[in-house]
Nucleic acid binder design. Structure first.
Length: 597
RNA sequence: GCCGGGGUAGCUCAGUGGCAGAGCAGCUGAUUCGUAAUCAGCAGGUCGCGGGUUCAAGUCCCGCCCCCGGCUCCA
């Protein structure tokens, strides 16, 4: 993974506290200005750390009471004063021991702890006005450069990111080189709220949550259309690639997890149900049950690879504070599959899987990025097995011409993996697809075998993979990606028929029936409202096509075609609209093509 | 789980101890309309849940639930 500004600061990596390019430097300086303001207003707070981060900065303080929104306003106002004073940032260097003495005198225990952990004889400090902080820089020349900033929020954060440590109070802010850039960023944040899948899910009647089932969505009819279309897409694709679909139980005896090893490491995350004195759990993953399917028959080397797919409904008891809309839930449905193959087939299988990822994500115009995680400190299996598997992953990535990052030692204990995440339009990253090689967990613990050509039993390699990841998260992401304006093949309502007035209702019903007969999701809006009103509603509902019908259209067997983009196409023969719609839906294109010649 | 902010009509939100409100949506009626909001009327409430203080609680106090932003976690 690329090193973030935060990593650099926290791990004291590199020679500086932030990237010396203008924007991170400015943000880093902004965090010092904020710390100065906080120290003036609240002299008793202790300073922790304050790095530049993506889009802004934060600073952590030890303070008995949390900052209130009013505190933030005061701090921001004082920051503006400090900026107007245009105080120069002045650097000086001190022997480490002297710096420790200095910060101990000033009553800054966190700075002392940092200094004690640093392997350097000489350390640097930066001063602006009365405020001086331990810091490797760089900084802007003076506080007057920090013109375009805004404090955004405060929250708790653990010292050094460890929940066993005391909780500090963190203030987040954003800072930019110019006021225009700041405004643009704040505008983007507003836009982000508008396309938040939780808001769109409610507005478009896709799904809802109720407090009786935290972390588990209720799919409404329109949202269920998305689920069904994605399922259909996945099944078509996998049927053409030699997958066999299975379904395994959701409620499973604890024994299974003892065998797989999950009980030891994962039981706190599993929902448990006692039935007649026996302990059952809601499965948190589908791999161990899949292994039972493999194991129920004697497998030959000729049978491999076996590809068992499963729309596996899983439950994980995520901590309550972590739940977020559809993207972090307690109940979700993975588009899971387990591929059992011979070691010599591994590379081809991985290559095919990465092709699948590319192909699927292209349909949704998502741009995936790939990360290869390699052997961790603690691992099962032999280094030779691991090297071969990692090699296969590297080769498969290269065969697909994919750029990828390597995350050293971040693999699962049972094998290396490739994770795929996507960036939504707003720049947030979400992990979706995963391709994990399993050298030992399923094969060893469930004693999976196949009879090789020499007549001897051998261990297969297992691959765990999900392409969408989960239907829930994936739908959350594409909802934001498309801002609710789904491609026609996914759109819950594909065309809405709008009669100009009651006089044209009969022809409108005919048009709607023709749509339905062609298995197009058409809807008639013959409410007693003006056309403009119904057009507005259809547009807000992001229905791709509006078919306006009145006197002229009824006469000529046409419809007047309007796109959700606002474009008005004019009269088009109904037969052509039906044919174009069928073609657009069948090809799963993202662009609106109906009626265009 | 931890820190903070929230929860009032279907939705968005106002209401700082004294009669529970607005806009949109809904319903009824009028209007029969040509490309982003026709007009009028009506109805709509366990103020998240439970307890407490008070003559009086949406409002103050305590506990719990859920949501939001972070932190932590994320086989």
């Amino acid at each position: 993974m690329a090193e973030t500004e935060e990593d650099r600061h926290l791990r004291f990596a590199g020679g500086l506290d932030c990237d010396p390019s203008p924007l991170p430097t400015l943000r880093h300086s902004a965090s010092h200005v904020m710390a100065q303001a906080v120290k003036r207003l609240f002299p008793d707070v202790k300073l922790a750390i304050g790095p530049a981060i993506e889009d802004g900065f934060y600073y952590d303080f030890a303070k008995p009471d949390p900052f209130t929104p009013e505190d933030l306003a005061k701090i921001e106002a004082l920051m503006h004063e400090l900026v107007r004073a245009d105080l120069p940032f002045v650097r000086r260097e001190l022997p480490r021991a002297e710096a420790i003495r200095l910060f101990r005198e000033r009553g800054e225990p966190f700075k002392v702890e940092i200094l004690e952990g640093i392997d350097a004889d000489l350390v640097s400090l930066y001063r602006q006005g009365e405020f001086e902080d331990l810091c490797r820089g760089p900084h802007v020349p003076s506080t007057g450069h920090v013109t375009a900033f805004k404090l955004l929020s405060s929250s708790g954060a653990y010292w050094r990111g460890d929940e066993r440590n005391p909780m500090l109070q963190r203030i987040y802010g954003t800072a930019w080189l110019t006021p225009e850039e700041l405004d643009r960023h704040l505008w983007r944040l507003e836009e982000a709220k508008k396309r938040d899948h939780r808001k769109l899910g409610r507005e478009l009647d896709l799904f809802d949550f109720f407090d009786v089932a935290p972390g588990a969505p209720f799919w409404l009819p329109k949202g269920m259309v998305l689920v069904r279309e994605l399922e259909r897409f996945a099944r078509e694709s996998l049927d053409a690639r030699g997958y066999q679909e299975i379904a395994t139980p959701i409620l499973i005896h604890k024994r299974l997890w003892e065998q797989s090893g999950h009980w030891e490491h994962y039981q706190d995350n599993m929902f448990q149900v006692e039935v007649e004195g026996q302990l059952f759990t809601l499965k948190p993953m589908n791999c161990p049950p899949s292994a039972y399917v493999y194991r129920r028959a004697l497998r030959s080397y000729r049978d491999l690879p076996l590809r068992f797919s499963e729309m596996g409904r899983c439950h994980r008891n995520e901590r309550s504070g972590t739940l977020t809309g559809l993207v972090r839930v307690r109940q979700f449905t993975q588009d899971d599959a387990h591929i059992y193959c011979r070691p010599d087939q591994l590379e081809d299988e991985i290559t095919a899987l990465l092709e699948l990822v590319r192909e699927w994500y292209k349909v949704f115009t998502l741009e995936p990025s790939f990360k290869l995680s390699t052997r961790p400190e603690k691992f099962l299996g032999t280094p030779e097995q691991w090297n071969a598997a990692e090699q296969a992953l590297h080769q498969a990535l290269k065969a697909n011409g994919l750029a990828y990052d390597v995350d050293p030692a971040a693999g699962a204990f049972y094998g290396p993996k490739i994770d795929v995440d996507v960036q939504d339009v707003l720049g947030r990253r979400w992990q979706i697809a995963t391709v994990q090689v399993d050298l030992t967990m399923l094969p060893e613990r469930f004693q999976l075998e196949y009879i090789d050509s020499d007549g001897h039993p051998k261990r297969p390699v297992a691959i765990h993979r999900a392409i969408f990841g989960s239907y829930e998260r994936f739908i959350g992401i594409i909802t934001e990606h498309f801002a609710g304006a789904f491609p026609t093949w996914l759109a819950p309502v594909q065309a809405r028929v709008l009669p100009v007035s009651e006089k044209h209702a009969e022809y409108a019903r005919t048009v709607t029936r023709r749509l339905t007969e062609a298995r197009i999701r058409g809807e008639l809006d013959d409410r007693n409202e003006k056309l403009g009103y119904r057009i507005r509603e259809a547009q807000l509902a992001k229905v791709p096509y509006m078919l306006v019908v009145g006197e002229r259209e009824a006469q000529n067997g046409t419809v007047s075609l309007r796109y959700r983009t606002g474009e008005d196409r004019g009269a088009v023969p109904l037969d052509r609209v039906l044919a174009d719609l069928a073609h657009e839906i069948g090809s799963r294109t993202v662009t609106l093509t109906v009626g265009r010649s």
